[in-house]
């Protein structure tokens, strides 16, 4: 564990707490893509199957349980408790265009040809693009509530912080995980546009609005 990974994980944790806070305080899931949230639940469940047969650390265990439980809880909130506040007509990204290619990539790039390893690879590739339905929705509506942009910024910061973590591990442990690194760089790059607007507008006290 190094400082970059710890800050990254804490940022990930914060993003989920901000998302829950947004839903509870506005009593609405307006502006949140159900598809992206469903993809994240899929990512965590397929990646953390090793909970059942591999012990890493208490930290690792608790975080994995938290990410699985919170992502399922968000789905429950969106699907049942605040269902009327979710508008599927603007959440129109075709997730099959993500799931199919990620399954193919997992078959091509993995560390071992076993079911858990294939699912792990799949989850890494899927995580890198899981934000796309959300960004697509943002692009369509052209604006976002400030708290939603804080959620996205914390989520983007999480993967961005994993990059210095990998560089650090490469030097100190001679460890390189090419699948995670490649997918992580792609994932971070997807946020660049968003970060630009976030830093130039939201953090200056303006509303998040995309140019028409």
């Amino acid at each position: 564990m190094n400082i970059f990974r710890l800050l990254g994980d804490l940022s990930h944790l914060a993003s989920i707490l901000i998302l829950l806070q947004k839903i509870q305080s506005t009593r609405s899931c307006r502006g949140i893509s159900f598809k992206t949230q469903a993809l994240y639940a899929t990512v965590f469940i397929t990646r953390y199957l090793d909970l059942f047969y591999d012990w890493v650390s208490l930290y690792n265990f608790v975080m994995k349980i938290f990410f699985i439980a919170s992502s399922c809880y968000v789905l429950y909130l969106m699907k049942y408790k605040y269902r009327p506040t979710h508008d599927p007509s603007i959440d129109t990204f075709r997730v099959e265009y993500l799931l199919g290619p990620c399954a193919v990539l997992a078959l091509l790039f993995h560390y071992r040809f076993t079911l858990p390893e294939l699912l792990w690879s799949f989850s890494i590739f899927l995580e890198s693009v899981a934000i796309l339905p959300q960004l697509f929705m943002l692009q369509r509506t052209g604006e976002a509530e400030t708290i939603t942009t804080h959620y996205l910024a914390a989520l983007g910061a999480y993967r961005a912080l994993y990059i210095p973590n990998w560089i650090y591990r490469w030097f100190t442990e001679d460890m390189v995980d090419p699948i995670a690194v490649t997918a992580g760089i792609v994932q971070t790059a997807l946020y660049l546009d968003f970060f630009y607007v976030y830093f130039t507008k939201v953090l200056q006290g303006q509303k998040f609005e995309l140019p028409a």
Partner: peptide, 10 residues
């Protein structure tokens, strides 16, 4: 180890 699986990462 190049190409190692970083299982301790989330």
């Amino acid at each position: 180890s190049q190409g190692a699986h970083s299982k301790d990462e989330l």
